[in-house]
Nucleic acid binder design. Sequence first.
DNA 1: CTTTCAACATATCAAAAAGGTAGGTTGAAA
DNA 2: TTTCAACCTACCTTTTTGATATGTTGAAAG
Lengths: 139, 139
Amino acid sequence: MISTRGRYALRVMIDIAEHGNGNYIRLDEIARRQEISEKYLESILVILTRGNLLSGLRGKGGGYKLTKSPEEYTIGSILRLTEGSLSPVACLKEGAQPCNKSAECKTLPVWKGLNDAINGYLDGITLAELTANGDDYSI
Amino acid sequence: MISTRGRYALRVMIDIAEHGNGNYIRLDEIARRQEISEKYLESILVILTRGNLLSGLRGKGGGYKLTKSPEEYTIGSILRLTEGSLSPVACLKEGAQPCNKSAECKTLPVWKGLNDAINGYLDGITLAELTANGDDYSI
DNA sequence: CTTTCAACATATCAAAAAGGTAGGTTGAAA
DNA sequence: TTTCAACCTACCTTTTTGATATGTTGAAAG
């Protein structure tokens, strides 16, 4: 359900939040710390950068840093970007053409409810709550 | 996330609950009504039968019927059987060898909470609530 | 102003999963 | 003993996942 792309993305965001302190961090440093291959990690950082969750800077002193403070990222926003969508079924994805049987579909309310449960849960947690210096997020 | 296997399985269970009335229903009848190919549907019914959610009878007058009343099936139990698992990550699947980094894993609590949210929601709905004659399950 | 450094871009690839098809076998009942 | 319909095994195509390799651009230090 959640692929390595999304899981790694979340780990990376935590890593940058904890070690960044507003400075740019190099890709190879993150890769080493998180034990992810540099090349695969790069493809994930591209997504996060294009989605404006991170900003990248080239050349000496370059790397990646957060574009906002950890409290402003929900886990849902990170995973929706990297996974493409968190919808349990295709017909609930953003921009999906509506199913012509949606009126009589007996299962649709289940998927809608599940969708809300998933997104609601993940949007209730921020990146700050997962970092060492963040608040504890246990319920 | 939820594949056609699980989605079809749920639709089929609703179909049998609504049209069965304790009698055996033939596969081709369900396939026609649900507009699913007989062969693909067969592979799904095998899973439901092996998992004892349905019982099958061969020969004339044969088919499939529920093994218990619709109120006794949770949606979660149907989907867990057909999808294999509803865990958002591999390390939370039943019988997965525990990750050696689980102690320091900052993301594990997120996955555990998500797992609980998903299974809790889906185990809170029964098959009876999705059938025409069942109760409305809206919250 | 050129060298260095590190992000950015593109192309390719193998393995696994999803989704579906085909044909034959068994067992229950008429 | 014939018919019917579930059951079983094997195969196949397409898509997704999870990478790897090679080269290009742009920012900054010297």
